[in-house]
């Protein structure tokens, strides 16, 4: 009680998410055609470690503490590339699933970080329905892991709570894994 979201909030998220997906479909060709900045070097689809570093950043990947002289806002290699539309719209469905799998595997053994939330949301937004069986079990694994992490939160004020609730909500209610719903 107090940790899980209201039904009304969940319904609003599903509705917003559905609109976001429609907009992606509408704008996909545009973003796919945009040139990437020179500093954006996307890993190959099967480069699992490369994708983890790309999305989460080297600081998190290597578990290093940024020094004060680092400007965290600028070095995407260190802090991770955000899921820009020009990046995610380039990914095939197979790549979306593969990156999703890499990140969910990473999350299976580590704590939640903001970069992870942004990428999971972006990848889920690009994941086409109907889901392939592998994608099904993948996103179920994600929702279960989110529930597990949430169950161990000590306070409702924990800033990861809303992100965990959002993931559970989208998997359970948008992707219709109703048995996992709050």
């Amino acid at each position: 009680v107090g940790f899980s979201p209201s039904l009304r909030w969940q319904q609003q998220q599903v509705s917003n998410f559905s609109e976001v997906r429609q907009s992606i479909n509408k704008h996909r060709q545009h973003w796919k055609a945009q040139a990437l900045d020179d500093n954006v070097i996307m890993p190959k689809p099967d480069d699992e470690e490369g994708w983890k570093k790309f999305c989460l950043g080297e600081n998190i990947y290597y578990n290093t503490t940024p020094t004060q002289s680092d400007d965290p806002g600028l070095d995407y290699v260190k802090v991770g590339f955000p899921p820009f539309l020009s990046i995610v719209c380039r990914l095939s469905q197979a790549s979306i699933s593969a990156v999703l799998e890499n990140l969910i595997n990473w999350f299976g053994e580590r704590e939640f970080v903001p970069q992870l939330g942004r990428w999971l949301y972006a990848l889920l937004a690009c994941l086409e329905k109907p889901l392939l069986p592998e994608a099904h079990s993948l996103i179920r694994q994600l929702a279960r892991r989110c529930s597990e992490v949430r169950a161990n939160l000590e306070t409702k004020e924990d800033e990861t709570l809303s992100a965990l609730n959002l993931m559970i909500c989208l998997v359970a209610r948008y992707f219709e894994q109703n048995d996992l719903a709050d």
Binding site: P5, S6, W9, Q12, Q13, N16, F17, V20, S23, I24, H27, W31, Q34, P82, P83, F84, L85, S86, V88, G117, R118, Y121, A122, A125, L161, S162, A163, N165, L166
Partner: peptide, 30 residues
């Protein structure tokens, strides 16, 4: 404003990040 439609405004390169941040913030405010 300035002739920029809401659609092009929202759908810049960071649209997904904004949508995520907005969703997360809405729970804190709910």
């Amino acid at each position: 404003g300035m002739g920029k439609s809401e659609d092009s405004d929202i759908w810049d390169d960071t649209a997904l990040i904004k949508a995520y941040d907005k969703a997360v913030a809405s729970f804190k405010n709910s």
